[in-house]
Amino acid sequence: MSIATNANTANEAIIEFRNAGYRLPDGQVLLKNVNLTVGRGETLVFLGRSGAGKTTALKLINRLIDPSEGEVRIEGRSTRDWDPIELRRHIGYVIQETGLFPHYTVEQNISLIPRLEKWPAARIGPRVQELLTLVGLDPAHFMERYPHELSGGQRQRVGVARALAADPPILLMDEPFGALDPLTRTEIRGEFQALQRRLGKTIVIVTHDTSEALLLGTRIGLVEAGELKGLYLAREFLRSNEPVASAYVAQLHALEVFEKDK
């Protein structure tokens, strides 16, 4: 059943890369000739080593950078034709260090975009409470706190709440759980999976963690040396015989060998 749903919704491309590439002004190529589409409600994971070009691909989506070749289309419109501010407010953005504003309380961090979008105050208050509850933080306890008073996991949750504040249909996450300790990471990942199913957002995640890619992604895009080396459904990925993919899968199985020895 889930396959059928995927097939139907995949027809409606929310994000589309067409021969998209990015080159630095000095000529160094960070990304070349990427072609892919992400359908509504789908979660695509860019998996690859550090410096492979994953983050570059992500930044092309919210137009933090413009493609040097080809184009990226969001809801059928090239990012070049979007007003960058309008586009970015349409897309939630979560980064590894969360980038929470240290001089704002949790409440002010989350409500910033709704305030800039001139939502009525009567709508903002309840929205902040709703979001904090959604990411598993007690609003009464956390609204007035500053980021430096929170643990890494709590900051990450606030980062997700902030990205969701104005209810954007698309969510971008750059190594969202990378800075967390392994136990907290597993916990938050689990919660995020539940959230993902509930919200039905179109999500693009960047990670170098294979298990994270498999847990969160409906599809996995392997990025190496600035190229998209392959695009797999999450369950295909485990069985793939292609050398690039199997290297990641082998890394995943490294621990099992250790368990057998025991």
């Binding site: 349409h90 953005y93 980064i95 971008l172």
Partner: peptide, 15 residues
Amino acid sequence: VDPAVREAARGMGLT
């Protein structure tokens, strides 16, 4: 100013 903070602000759509 922490580059992550500026990057987040830009990514969120602040002018």
